[in-house]
């Protein structure tokens, strides 16, 4: 039996809103250790992985591992019936008494999970999630791709389009900066990657979930954009860089 209860439906709504542009159908793999999801977009250029920890739920019971294939648009439609502070219960198997009861069809989705090594990255930048979202949105009005470069001084975003170029540089802040404004850099060597802006803009739908975003980069490897949720662990987005032929 699987039974998950969350007293703030708003959190689940925000998680869904942040992933449903990228992926239409996905398997939620539930186990005693938590609910996880890994899915690629249809072009297999971007990927997301999500972990919802058991202690993030008010009630979490998962007697056996279960994979729930769900259409994310349908799930979002159902959750729209709940207010942000309503309690939402997801159960598979026997139902219990509830004030309202929604049933949703599960789907069989064949998915192959990729093994993502927890290897170190050449540069890791933490910056305000809202600032990253604004930069991606602004640059998206000018170009299709952005070159993100990290040096020990800061992080630079450069784009080129029909109407010319745009360059935004965010300097690393001092250690005393307030958390919501802080920009920190851990770096082994400078890294520069060229990325499709439309995917980055889609990743920033997760901005309401976290104050800060962590951007991990290594030369020639997918960039990782991670949002750490306060009570629910994390959501990570991966994007393959563009390479010069």
């Amino acid at each position: 039996m699987l039974e998950l209860r969350l007293t703030r439906a708003g959190l689940l709504k925000k998680v869904l809103e942040s992933i449903r542009d990228l992926v239409t159908d996905a398997n939620f793999d539930c186990a005693a250790t938590g609910c996880s999801l890994q899915a690629m977009d249809s072009s297999r250029v971007a990927m997301l992985s999500l972990l919802l920890r058991p202690d993030g739920f008010e009630h979490y019971r998962c007697d056996r591992n279960i994979s729930m294939g769900m259409n994310l648009a349908n799930m979002a439609r159902m959750l729209r019936c709940a207010s942000d502070d309503d309690t939402v219960t997801i159960n598979a198997d026997d139902a219990q008494d509830k004030i309202s009861d929604y049933e949703m069809k599960l789907m069989h989705i064949t998915s192959e999970n990729l093994e993502i090594p927890e290897a170190g990255y050449e540069a890791i930048v933490k910056m305000p999630a809202s600032l990253f979202a604004r930069i991606c949105k602004d640059l998206g009005t000018i170009g299709d791709t952005v070159m993100i470069s990290v040096t020990k001084e800061g992080i630079q975003f450069f784009t080129r389009g029909d109407i010319r170029t745009a360059n935004i540089f965010c300097r690393k802040t001092t250690p005393v900066a307030k958390e919501k404004e802080a920009i920190s850099i851990e770096m082994e060597k400078p890294v520069s990657l060229t990325l499709a802006l439309r995917y980055l803009i889609s990743f920033t739908k997760a901005t309401p979930l976290a104050k800060q975003v962590t951007i991990s980069m290594s030369y020639g490897r997918p960039i990782v954009v991670e949002y750490k949720m306060e009570i629910m662990d994390h959501i990570r987005f991966y994007l393959v860089p563009k390479v010069e032929e």
């Binding site: 971007a46 990729l114 093994e115 090594p117 991966y238 393959v240 390479v243």
Partner: peptide
């Protein structure tokens, strides 16, 4: 010229 690689070029399937 830019080329776009896919995710499985970097990670292996479980």
């Amino acid at each position: 010229r830019e080329t776009q690689l896919r995710m499985e070029a970097f990670y292996t399937f479980n």
